[in-house]
Amino acid sequence: MPYFNDVSVGDALPELKKQATTAQLVMYAGASNDYNQIHYDAEVAARAGHKSVIIHGALKNAWLAQLVTDWIGTTGTLAKISVTYRGIDYPNDPITCKGKVTGKRSDEGRNLVDCEIWLENGEGNVTTPGTATVELPTR
């Protein structure tokens, strides 16, 4: 688990790989109370112009949050996470969440690290860029 002292601008976050099945989308629909049919009914998704059902934006947000919390472990704290859904993602596509440190600062006694985070689809295109800020302990 990283300490503030040991983190440098440019450091890469350990990658997080995900691959959603349609069953996972249904589980997420139930667990998050989001019953928009575009995530589990192929006809509804086709009518909206998609090649298949699509992954919930909020599920991608959850994965990008996990990218950060896996990195900081139980001793760091997620202060802020911002994501933009720029491209649609589909079940069965291999997805990789990535991130890197872009800044370090101290604010009212809190040691904060800013990161750029993003999600790439199987073709390596960034569909979901974002930023995160974490508070880390010091040695």
């Binding site: 909206a48 919930h56 934006g57 947000n61 202060a79 911002s82 859904y85």
Partner: peptide
């Protein structure tokens, strides 16, 4: 009727 989620910013 059609809706998409554009993005989100959480602060904790």
């Amino acid at each position: 009727r059609e809706v998409l989620d554009g993005g989100s910013e959480y602060e904790y």
